[in-house]
Design a protein around this nucleic acid. Structure first.
Length: 419
RNA sequence: GUGAGCGUAGCUCAACAGGUUAGAGCACCGGACUGUGGAUCCGGAGGUCGGGGGUUCGAGACCCCUCGCUCACCCCA
């Protein structure tokens, strides 16, 4: 380090943050529960690279989306290739499936994935530049029952982690046959009120009329209530799909709200769209969002295989999961004198082999000091190893909660400590 | 990218109207107590007041710039 840079502190990049041990515990918990549930539904983990060819997202996510237009971490590598840190996961999975010819295996295929995503957004509550998602995708199943299955699976995950105050919103965004005429009609209708809409919405009439529905300006909101709903414009196939989807949800006893104003931001969605929203999250209230994308695989030059999936924002999810504080359960090994220290090190090794979490102090400290530290660290047990104990082969085991102490041998330790 | 609010010790916050050497609680380290924790008492360490410039006899405070954080918009997980 040169003298000049010595004092300059380096901080985590804007929109990124460290997940410290206490917080990481929560992540581990959520990840393990999610994994267990997904596996039970027949999903298998798939891992793909963290960066891809920029083109993958331009084509897969859609050139008209904000993600591609202004939010991608794109850079050129030393070979002159344009690469992008993945802003979402679905295009990568689709790519992997085509590349590895996974579509030749029996369908449907179910995948899950967990990992970081990157979007160059301005950070705010529940939104980070590096954030994490748990994603699941199913390929090759057209039946709307699968749409309901993944909603039910997500609901189970929420329930197992005691997440309440979550509302499930569902909608159908139609397909390439029925959506264009609907959008036309929406534009026409919005055009009638153009003068009364806010500047943003006037722009949306042209760019993305569906977005007018979630404008926060009251007048826009009021006006848009009279606009046609996509539900009423669905083609027979989409309508059938949607009603069967809903009746499957009913069968599972899932409570949901049909929200005709629900539009997912990505270009590739068709038919089913859904979102889990929490009232506890502030402005960014969507914890989980997903839907069907029947045309994507084909658009990538793959076979005509439909897909459906969801993405859950882990930062957002974890912030609404209630966690019990986990009690520490470890043994602190206190020692006095050089011989005892060596004996203690061997004992610690023995205990760890047996699966007992064990801390040993390497600095010479008074017994009092060591026990005090053990207390602060939350040790459940203190094992006292002094010259006398080493000589006798019998050690003092102190229970920190009760303060009681007993004399035990090395052989007796595992059964007592693991009880 | 646009807008608003906030930056004083590891954390939470003080410091009148601009006035000496920027304080307190919690946390940390040590001692009282050399083989027994939590309580108490005593002591210690810890700060370029986010950074730079300006006004002033004098700036943590006032002005300008900048950086960072937070929240909101756009949009999304």
């Amino acid at each position: 380090m040169t003298p000049k840079t010595k004092n300059k502190k380096i901080f985590a990049i804007k929109g990124t943050k460290d997940i410290l041990p206490q917080e990481a515990r929560k992540w581990q918990k959520v990840e393990s529960v999610a994994k267990r549930i997904f596996e039970v539904y027949g999903y298998r983990e798939i891992r793909t690279p963290i960066f891809e060819a920029t083109e993958l997202f331009e084509k897969g996510t859609g050139q008209t989306t904000d993600i591609v237009i202004k939010e991608m971490y794109t850079f050129t590598d030393k070979g002159g290739r344009s690469l992008t840190l993945r802003p979402e996961y679905t295009p990568s999975v689709v790519r992997a499936i085509i590349e590895n010819r996974l579509y030749l295996q029996p369908q449907p295929q179910r995948f899950y994935f967990m990992g970081p995503m990157f979007r160059y957004d301005k950070p705010q509550k529940g939104r980070y530049r590096q954030f994490h998602q748990i994603d699941i995708e199913v390929f090759g199943e057209k039946d709307p029952a699968i749409d309901a299955e993944i909603v039910e699976m997500a609901a189970r995950l929420f329930k197992e982690l005691n997440v309440v105050d979550v509302e499930i919103l569902v909608n159908s965004v139609g397909c390439r046959n029925c959506r264009p005429p609907y959008l036309e009609e929406l534009r026409r209708k919005a055009g009638e009120y153009i003068g009364q809409l806010c500047a943003d919405c006037q722009r949306k009439v042209v760019t993305n009329p569906l977005r007018i529905f979630d404008c926060k300006v009251e007048l826009c909101n009021e006006i848009s209530r009279s606009f046609p709903n996509i539900i009423d414009y669905l083609c027979p196939e989409c309508e059938e799909h949607f009603s069967r989807f809903c009746s499957c949800l009913d069968l599972y006893g899932i409570k949901y709200t049909v929200e005709p104003r629900l539009v997912r931001g990505l270009d590739y969605y068709t038919k089913t769209a859904f979102e889990f929203v929490s009232s506890k999250l502030g402005a960014q209230d969507a914890v989980l969002g997903g839907g069907r994308y029947d045309d994507m695989m084909k658009a990538f030059g793959g076979p005509e295989i439909c897909g459906i999936g969801f993405a859950m924002g882990l930062e957002r999810f974890i912030s609404v999961v209630p966690f019990e504080e986990k009690k520490e359960d470890f043994l602190y090994l206190a020692h006095m004198g050089d011989r005892a220290k060596k004996a203690g090190m061997e004992l610690a090794r023995f205990l760890r082999q047996k699966g007992i979490e064990c801390l040993i102090e390497y600095k010479e400290r008074s017994l009092k000091n060591q026990i005090s530290r053990a207390n602060k660290l939350g040790a459940k047990w203190v094992l006292i190893v002094g010259e006398e104990e080493v000589k006798k082969g019998r050690y003092q085991l102190k229970n920190m909660a009760t303060g009681l102490q007993e004399e035990i041998t090395k052989e007796e330790m595992p059964s007592i400590l693991l009880a």
